[in-house]
Design a protein around this nucleic acid. Sequence first.
DNA 1: ACTATATACGACTATTTTAATCGTATATAA
DNA 2: TTATATACGATTAAAATAGTCGTATATAGT
Lengths: 132, 132
Amino acid sequence: MLKITRKVEYALIALRHMQQASEHSVSSTTEIATQYGIPQHLLAKILQQMARDNLIQALKGPAGGYKIKADLDKISLKDFFEKLEGPLGLMDCYFNTDCLQMKSCNILTPLQRINQNMRDMFSKTTLMEITQ
Amino acid sequence: MLKITRKVEYALIALRHMQQASEHSVSSTTEIATQYGIPQHLLAKILQQMARDNLIQALKGPAGGYKIKADLDKISLKDFFEKLEGPLGLMDCYFNTDCLQMKSCNILTPLQRINQNMRDMFSKTTLMEITQ
DNA sequence: ACTATATACGACTATTTTAATCGTATATAA
DNA sequence: TTATATACGATTAAAATAGTCGTATATAGT
Ligand code: FES
Ligand code: FES
């Protein structure tokens, strides 16, 4: 329970890889996928999404690849997770008032407090703290 | 991402319900299931597990049900989650050294730090804080 | 211009995890 | 004896996640 997805893990691995590559070089999908044993096509989709989100920049053609575009020091893990996977919360009802269609959920208020703690924790952590 | 399971949510709802019932009364599965719209058979299994874990005590027969047995003030949310759902961590490799069979995971160390933060947070919160 | 290599992207399939159901056994108060 | 409750394993259904496939497009190098 409470695990990050492979998608997020692959994204973090790729970010760190690029972060540690030299400033002006690019890293290709193939290069990253083979080095860390990530399914290439899957990684490709993830990198494409990160490019759309302006986290990284794509360079097409031979000798192309990606390099980091955003300032990783200014992006929280919470924002990163939400970019990739959508709403981040312990319960669905944090974003959606349906609340499991329950007549009356008796733990909503206390759970929201815990949830806020968790979100705060991920808000205070930057991407840089993982990729540096 | 990072959501608790329905199982855990149902368990918490039931605990709070019992906590708020009078000291010497018992709450039956049917009573709780109907009040909160939880599938009865599913809730039954969850309550049985909590009884095995000595969180609650079962009383069989007509007018039977469950009542709280453990001291909820002394049980952390982390321990509760792990009782119900097993190992609690952001990554599988926190407990299992396989680490996705990756040749070399470059984010293991930083992720473990974040993971520890999360576990600490749930360790510091007691069940009572949700059920009271 | 051609070719090889790379990103782009939608559709599809497979796998895993979670959620829910079913059937049957056992205990016990009335 | 009966009605009501817990106990528990087996099975099925649904949802979320992970991975694959096919095809299009861009571009550096030749
Ligand atoms: S249904 Fe949302 S917290 Fe219970
Ligand atoms: S494989 Fe475990 S943190 Fe990367």
